[in-house]
Amino acid sequence: MDVFMKGLSKAKEGVVAAAEKTKQGVAEAAGKTKEGVLYVGSKTKEGVVHGVATVAEKTKEQVTNVGGAVVTGVTAVAQKTVEGAGSIAAATGFVKKDQLGKNEEGAPQEGILEDMPVDPDNEAYEMPSEEGYQDYEPEA
Rank of each mutant, 00 (worst) to 15 (best):
G36M: 13
T59I: 13
K60V: 06
I88F: 13
E137G: 09
D135F: 08
G47K: 08
K80E: 00
A56T: 08
T81R: 02
E131V: 10
E46R: 13
G84H: 09
K10Y: 11
T75K: 14
P138M: 06
S87D: 15
Y133C: 01
S129Y: 12
V40M: 06
T59D: 01
D2F: 13
G14F: 08
V71W: 14
E123V: 14
S42P: 12
E20G: 02
A69C: 00
V37R: 00
G106R: 08
Q62N: 09
K58M: 11
K58F: 06
E114P: 04
P128Q: 01
Y125G: 14
Q134Y: 05
G106C: 11
E123G: 15
M127D: 05
T22V: 14
Q109Y: 13
E57D: 13
G14Q: 08
L38K: 07
Q24D: 03
V40K: 02
T81D: 01
A107Y: 02
G86L: 08
E46P: 04
G47I: 11
S87V: 04
E114I: 15
L113C: 03
M1R: 01
V82Q: 06
E104G: 13
G132S: 12
N65I: 09
A140K: 13
Q99N: 05
N65E: 05
E35L: 14
A76L: 02
T33R: 01
K45F: 14
V48Y: 09
E35S: 14
P120I: 15
Q134H: 03
Q62A: 07
A140E: 06
V95G: 06
K34S: 13
E46N: 14
G67S: 12
A140N: 09
K43M: 09
G51V: 14
G101R: 07
V74H: 00
Q24A: 01
E105C: 13
E126V: 08
N122T: 07
E110R: 10
I88A: 04
E131R: 14
K21W: 09
E104A: 02
A78V: 08
V48A: 13
F94L: 04
K23G: 06
T75C: 07
K32A: 04
Y39F: 04
G7P: 04
I112L: 05
L113R: 14
A76F: 03
S42A: 05
L100S: 01
T59G: 04
D135G: 04
V71H: 12
E126A: 13
G51R: 14
A78W: 10
E130A: 06
K6Y: 02
K23D: 01
A27I: 10
N103F: 05
G7Y: 02
A69W: 14
E139S: 13
K45N: 08
A69G: 08
E20T: 11
L100Y: 02
V70A: 03
A76I: 13
E61Y: 05
K10P: 06
E57W: 11
T59V: 04
D98E: 09
E137M: 08
K58W: 13
M127K: 06
T33A: 10
D98S: 01
D119W: 13
V55H: 00
V52C: 01
E139W: 10
T22Q: 01
P108M: 15
K34P: 00
E20K: 08
Q109R: 11
S129A: 15
E130I: 06
E35T: 12
S87Y: 11
Q24S: 07
E35G: 07
F94E: 05
M127R: 11
T22I: 12
K34N: 10
K10T: 03
T54S: 14
V74N: 01
D119K: 02
E61P: 02
S9V: 07
K60R: 01
G84F: 12
D115Q: 12
K34L: 02
I88L: 14
P138G: 12
A107W: 15
E35Q: 08
D115A: 03
A140L: 04
E13K: 02
T72G: 10
A27M: 13
K102V: 13
K60L: 08
G31A: 03
V66S: 01
K60M: 03
Q79F: 10
V77W: 11
M127H: 04
G47W: 09
G47A: 05
K96Y: 04
S42T: 14
L113V: 04
K80T: 03
A11W: 13
E57R: 10
G25K: 07
V40Y: 05
Q109C: 13
G25M: 15
E130P: 10
V52N: 00
V15M: 05
K45S: 01
G111F: 12
T75M: 15
Q99R: 05
Q109K: 01
